[in-house]
Write a protein that binds this DNA or RNA. Structure first.
Length: 276
DNA sequence: GGCCAGGAAAAAG
DNA sequence: CTTTTTCATGGC
């Protein structure tokens, strides 16, 4: 794909390696809206309106640099896909989700949102995140930013209870209060993936699966394979097994795909979900 | 009414 | 150490 920066938008010509619907609706982001012209996506305090019409994509935003990084335009997905498509168990999935890109979302935002995601459904997750932004994020005019760490730390437990977070209310409150001044997240950036996962799992409400989602989507670690119910289904379908140990399945997939695990996971996950 | 939703914590075996 | 149960909430 190639992109050109204009005054107030970025024009993208995809080589089949950027599909906005696939990228936003494959479960890696919760703050976006479907529009008649395409999509609006929010990340931290930034916003982009994405116009999609027959192959050409225009991204209108005040933060072009931010979204060029956000949409991972500097990574060559044609090369990644050519390596993954050679694996017979991924051939169909790569073809099906060939326009998926893994976003560079903010680590703190992902940490909060994926705690909310556990045993929950996407419409509810989106609603809860929106309420948090409306009440504690900066007013950006026609939308609200995701709260900063300072703002998050001011949220009382009652708020999470009242917006119907369910039993996750305590996880959110306790984890936010234990985040310090952000030095923990900065330290995680410099750790190897195994240590980073251990550190994330020390927070209340973060287990292996949520940690791997945060690592992949927030820290862009592609040597993880988040394994949820959909991935378990995909695994058993591929190998004709009846395995239900998520950790075992995750480990096997990482052994198979190595540094491309995160990409492989997104292709498999998206295909499994869309075709069920 | 039971089941499920991108699971994790706590209890039990 | 491994397996099972519990945990809010809402949509179906």
């Amino acid at each position: 794909m190639k992109y050109t920066e204009y005054d107030d938008y970025i024009e993208v010509k995809s080589d089949g390696d950027f599909d906005v619907k696939q990228t936003l609706e494959c479960g890696q982001v919760f703050r976006y809206k479907v529009r008649d012209f395409g999509y609006t996506v929010y990340s931290l305090s930034h916003k982009a309106d994405i116009y999609c019409q027959n192959g050409t994509i225009k991204i209108y935003t005040k933060d072009k640099k931010y979204f060029i990084k956000y949409f991972d335009f500097c990574t060559n997905y044609v090369r990644i896909k050519s390596r993954l498509v050679a694996d017979p168990i991924l051939k169909d999935a790569v073809g099906f989700g060939s326009g998926i890109r893994i976003l560079n979302s903010d680590p703190l935002e992902m940490l909060i949102e994926f705690i909310i995601s556990q045993n929950n459904n996407i419409p509810r997750i989106k609603g809860i995140v929106e309420k948090i932004c409306e009440s504690y994020g900066d007013d950006m005019g026609d939308y609200y930013a995701f709260p900063t760490l300072e703002q998050l730390k001011k949220i009382p437990l009652d708020f999470f209870t009242n917006i119907k977070c369910g039993y996750r209310d305590k996880y959110l409150y306790e984890t936010i209060q234990s985040l310090g001044d952000g030095e923990i997240i900065n330290n995680i950036m410099n750790m190897n993936t195994a240590d980073a996962r251990k550190e994330l799992c020390r927070f209340k409400g973060i287990g292996r699966k949520v940690a791997d989602c945060i690592l992949l989507f927030g820290f862009h670690r592609t040597d993880v394979f988040p394994t949820d119910t959909w991935v378990i289904q995909a695994y058993n379908k591929i190998f004709g097994t009846n395995e239900n140990n998520a950790t075992l399945i995750s480990t096997k997939f990482v052994d198979r795909f190595g540094d491309l695990s995160g990409y492989a996971q997104q292709y498999l996950f998206y295909q499994m979900r869309e075709n069920s």
